[in-house]
Nucleic acid binder design. Structure first.
Lengths: 261, 261
DNA sequence: AATCTTGTTTCTCTATGCGGAACAGCGCGA
DNA sequence: TCGCGCTGTTCCGCATAGAGAAACAAGATT
């Protein structure tokens, strides 16, 4: 019976439950016991007990018809708490709104988490063509504009680690060569913003500018995303200009002050 | 050692963890081990193990300075998944935006869950005076406009149960008498919308209209909230009119069609 | 109707996760 | 400055909670 190395400091049963929760995705929002059990390599009975408990606490909902599960509103509540307490969200919200009103393009706030960018706030444009992203989504650092702009200002050990983990090609445009990435990051530091042109998904472009906190560290990015057709180089430059000024404003509200030199 | 009645179908350790997560609130977003242990009546060691596991999976974040915990981004991700899959949110978003643009008042989408209204979507107005609510927040049914309008259309067994559980007075304005509530609900069914005037919190008024799904059941409500000073009776009536038309539009998008009689 | 599926329940056994207590690392105040 | 009182963390031993296998029930699909 091979179990995972029993670590005295963690709870394996809880881990199972958390993994079960993570099985739910926007593409796959409704799951059955067997499905989850297979994904996690656990027995049906175990998963059943896990799901029953999660359901009891409102973290998942059991559909009485199909006997399958969906995420419950308790997680929404927790998400709300996070949102209202992530400073960067609070401070950025209105500025993002202005941006959307002005350009009518979708914007995100993203932060660095565990060698990935996570979208912590999102404001959609009204355009018919929209890019499907969701709050909390993790994306690689090397092939997104937000990721690259955050990475550009991280300690070199972080950059090394990202490279060590491998620059996976998501599209033909993805930067996969370490040297080219390093060179680009250096350029991004000069420009103060980053582009991504179909590097994560074909036909999706984006622009991002860095957000700093009071420690002067870059902790996140504001980023506009849209279809390649609309995101011409000229437009992206113009967006970049506005994003940079927004990102500076957010940074100021987080206690950052520009160095007088 | 009194433990909770050992139920073969649930995991007590998982329950502990979920309860721990629920300790976090917008008012109290950062908690220490001891604090949580006290709240839950568990030993520090147990909570410590729970939190370590939660942290490992990104459900909480440990602040390296203070050694206290905040909610992590994993829950945000789950919240995002819920949002993008709750039909009512998807369908309602744009309509709510229009409402805010027109009236500049905060609107929510609320659904019925476990004898409470839960806010599943929120769009804030730009007014300086804002009412602090957060996504996922549960409020009683008898003292909110969304709660009352949802309750009005529920099976009488639901109404009975709400009354049985007690109509707790939140303010001097809260309806605490069963008969008055029943009478009011009947009036709400005639009007097609509900008001709340300082019934949940002093100085906070709201208006709500019911949302139905394809089964014709009322499953939620659109509701506008604001300070009493701005929410005069005339204004509330005018808001109600718009909310009713929005709620009908959302209902249609959820597959509801008005009965031809 | 027969045979796949599901999800649910029962059972048994041992590793797991519990609490208590010892340990460590602060900040505060005397 | 030194300890005292908080924290959070680790250790340990015992009882039990939770893991899986397998039986069971209840729909689907043919």
């Amino acid at each position: 019976m091979e179990r995972q190395a029993a670590d005295y400091r963690t709870l394996s049963s809880l881990k199972n439950a958390l993994h079960a929760l993570k099985c739910f995705t926007p593409e796959d929002p409704e799951l059955g016991i067997t499905q989850i059990a297979d994904k996690l390599g656990l027995s049906k009975s175990t998963v059943h007990r896990v799901m029953t408990t999660l359901a009891e606490e409102g973290f998942v909902r059991r559909d009485e018809q199909t006997h399958r599960y969906r995420l419950g509103l308790s997680v929404l509540s927790l998400g709300g708490i996070i949102m209202s307490n992530l400073e960067i969200c609070r401070e950025g919200q209105h500025l993002l709104e202005e941006f959307v009103n002005r350009f009518d393009e979708t914007v995100h706030l993203a932060v660095l988490e565990d060698y990935a960018t996570v979208y912590v706030s999102k404001l959609e444009c009204k355009h018919p063509v929209q890019i499907a992203t969701h709050l909390g989504r993790k994306n690689p650092l090397h092939c997104t504009s937000s990721g690259k702009v955050i990475l550009a200002y991280q300690d070199s050990t972080v950059i090394d680690e990202v490279i060590r983990r491998g620059l996976r090609a998501m599209t033909p445009n993805t930067i996969t060569h370490p040297d080219i990435l390093r060179q680009l990051l250096s350029q991004i530091r000069k420009d103060g913003y980053a582009f991504s042109q179909s590097e994560l998904r074909e036909g999706v472009h984006s622009v991002a500018a860095p957000v700093r906190d009071y420690t002067r560290q870059v902790i996140g990015a504001v980023t506009a995303v849209g279809p390649a057709a609309r995101f011409t180089p000229e437009k992206m430059k113009s967006l970049a200009k506005t994003l940079v000024s927004i990102s500076k404003e957010i940074s100021h509200r987080l206690g950052y002050y520009e160095r007088t030199r």
